[in-house]
């Protein structure tokens, strides 16, 4: 796929990406771009490899022994393969944020949760920390609910608030790409709606890749959608095209089978 033919610049691009859990191949020769300041959704049945694919971008698979990548994920503007052995996964994670399926706030105060990434980056200036925490909480639409209890433990927040806290935590370090791994699957419909709204605002400043197994959600929030099945990327395109007239029979089966 030639990025120049597309109106949006490419932020990252998977090229012939294979991934193995030990001997089991979980991703098969995936080629796919992520467009800058766009929301790209990964859909597909359970076990299709969509989360596996997402977690390649910030090298989460490096945490466990026996995992192996092949191929490339080229990251722009650096034009560097993120999967290269010479690339430091910590550097990667400093620039690519992630929000997980289940909210996972750290056992610290609300303030310290958001400030965590900055502290890890060596930021000690209290003023900078205060400003950045406030800004991030505002960006995550959580500020008004927590501004009077920043010293409270994060565990005391509700599930939806915890997830927004995790988003604020990821935003505080100004990531260039944000990965969402089924961020609303553990939340109730109201919390889900607020997170979706948030993502819509976020795409003004950050590229977003989201895994979801809720197709309506993909249709609501994403600009591009990729359908994956058994480790293969079956179809990738603009979301409205995928949902209205998919080119591949398998995509159509999946979408109609679930939507009808």
């Amino acid at each position: 796929m030639n990025p120049n033919q597309h109106p949006y610049p490419v932020k990252a691009e998977a090229r012939k990406l294979n991934f193995f859990y030990g001997l089991v191949q979980a991703l098969k020769a995936i080629d796919m771009p992520l467009y800058e300041r766009q929301v790209t959704a990964l859909i597909g049945p359970s076990g299709c490899g969509k989360s596996t694919f997402l977690r390649c971008f910030n090298r989460m698979h490096d945490l466990y022994p026996g995992n192996r990548y092949e191929g490339e994920i080229v990251f722009h503007p650096d034009n560097t393969n993120l999967l290269s052995t010479e690339v430091d996964p910590i550097e990667v994670r400093m620039r690519i944020g992630m929000v997980f399926q289940k909210p996972n706030p750290f056992p610290k105060s609300i303030f310290e949760n958001v400030a965590y990434g900055l502290r890890v980056r060596g930021e000690r200036n209290r003023r900078v920390l205060d400003d950045k925490v406030e800004q991030s909480l505002k960006d995550a639409a959580l500020w008004n609910e927590v501004k009077d209890r920043l010293k409270d433990m994060a565990f005391n927040l509700s599930g939806g608030q915890q997830q927004r806290l995790c988003i604020a935590r990821a935003l505080a370090t100004d990531p260039e790409l944000l990965l969402f791994d089924e961020p609303t699957s553990a939340l109730d419909p109201i919390a889900t709606a607020s997170i979706e709204e948030l993502m819509h605002d976020l795409k003004k400043r950050v590229t977003i890749l989201i895994v979801t197994h809720n197709m309506q959600q993909a249709a609501r929030i994403s600009d591009h959608t990729a359908y994956m099945y058994l480790g293969d990327l079956i179809e990738f395109g603009k979301t409205d095209e995928i949902f209205i007239k998919p080119r591949d029979k398998r995509t159509e089966d999946y979408i109609t089978g679930r939507l009808s």
């Binding site: 910590i90 550097e91 890890v120 980056r121 060596g122």
Partner: peptide, 12 residues
């Protein structure tokens, strides 16, 4: 450059 230094220190 700053972040590189921080990471290097962290790794040490």
């Amino acid at each position: 450059a700053d972040i590189h230094a921080v990471i290097r220190r962290g790794k040490r």
